[in-house]
């Protein structure tokens, strides 16, 4: 069933089918077109780069979330992992004399690896609890949401870690050929994730585990290992997002990332990945994240209150899932 929905065998499509398959792309194009007509500043190089840079953090999180959701899981902990990786990496990258890591600032590369390791560690703990101990993902990652936030507060003493080294900040504020580094990180993450999901055996296994776990197990796939690894991937990307955020704001805040998991899940769902698992694409997620980013940016440009943005985002999520439901019903 899922396969049929995912890979149509060509042929002519009815109008309804086109809307279903490319609805999200059409929505993004419509939003961009409308904003271009309304605001002179929307379709400028600087603003387009702004939108992409503002989307980078949620985009990276949402790509990791896609792996998890494809296996019928969910990762509620990413917002807290953003904060934990951010403060730990920052403690190695700070130039402040109040720092507590001897010899700081360490080379940015090492600080970044440490931050990634923290994210992967959190993901590994969630992954073991889900895969090995059969705790529902919702519960396991809810636990991690609380624990990682608590660890963040304990580690930082609840205070921001300021004055990050310029080399560390490059991942948030630097640019290559005029294009901000976070955009490269987002597109790099996307390209890698897309390759893994579409071109590797592991990627096919992710779909198989989510599509029909029982069949996957019977046919000898390492179901537990795959379930474990998707949380490690999500954790690592949450770590990356946390460091981009710290580098962008110049200081790692223990309150960072609160409720970021919701925007990440929203991007995945809007992008057409089914919460029932097995169906979805990381390209859809990227477009979903871009749609949220474009919408926030556009409403800011028009001077619309942020409260409306939340209402509109709410409608968008529900509409996306309704579309998804009708698709399933047809099959």
């Amino acid at each position: 069933m899922e396969l049929k929905a995912k890979t149509p065998a060509g042929g002519s499509l009815s109008g309804g089918q086109i809307v279903q398959r490319y609805g999200i792309v059409i929505a993004l194009l419509l939003a961009c077109l409308t904003l271009t007509l309304i605001s002179d500043n929307f379709l400028t190089t600087r603003n387009v780069l702004n939108v992409l840079r503002q989307t980078s953090i949620n985009g990276v999180l949402a790509i990791g979330m896609t792996f998890v959701i494809l296996t019928r899981g969910i990762d509620l902990s990413v917002g807290s992992v953003v904060a934990l990786s951010g403060v730990v990496a920052a403690s190695f990258a700070t130039t402040s004399s109040a720092g507590f890591i001897p010899g700081a600032p360490w080379p940015a590369g090492i600080a970044i690896l440490i931050g990634l390791a923290v994210g992967m560690g959190c993901g590994a703990v969630s992954g073991v609890i889900v895969a090995r101990y059969r705790v529902p993902a919702f519960v396991a990652t809810l636990g991690m949401l609380s624990a990682a936030r608590g660890l963040t507060l304990l580690y930082s003493g609840g205070r921001p870690i300021p004055a990050l080294s310029e080399t560390f900040r490059w991942i948030g504020t630097g640019s290559i050929l005029g294009i901000p580094v976070p955009i490269f990180l987002l597109l790099g993450t996307f390209a890698l994730a897309h390759f893994v999901l579409t071109q590797t055996r592991f990627g096919r296994h992710v779909y198989a585990v989510g599509g029909n776990p029982h069949a996957a197990k019977v046919s000898g796939l390492p179901v537990n290992r795959i379930r474990f690894l998707v949380y490690v991937i999500s954790g690592a990307l949450a770590g990356l997002a946390g460091m981009i955020l710290a580098a962008r704001t110049g200081s790692a805040l223990p309150q960072a990332g609160i409720a970021y998991e919701l925007d990440a899940i929203a991007a995945v769902v809007i992008g057409g990945t089914s919460l029932a698992g097995g169906v979805g694409r990381v390209s859809g997620t990227l477009i979903g994240a871009l749609l949220i980013g474009v919408m926030n940016n556009g409403l800011d440009l028009m001077g619309v209150e942020s409260y409306y943005q939340q209402v509109i985002k709410g409608f968008l999520i529900v509409a996306a899932v309704m579309l998804d439901q009708s698709k399933n019903k047809q099959d």
């Binding site: 500043n41 600087r46 603003n47 702004n50 503002q54 704001t249 309150q255 926030n296 800011d300």
Partner: peptide, 16 residues
């Protein structure tokens, strides 16, 4: 009260 939110808002205002 959020630094990250203010940063995004200000970026968009500087564009507008």
């Amino acid at each position: 009260w959020s630094r990250a939110e203010a940063q995004t808002l200000m970026e968009n205002w500087l564009t507008a």
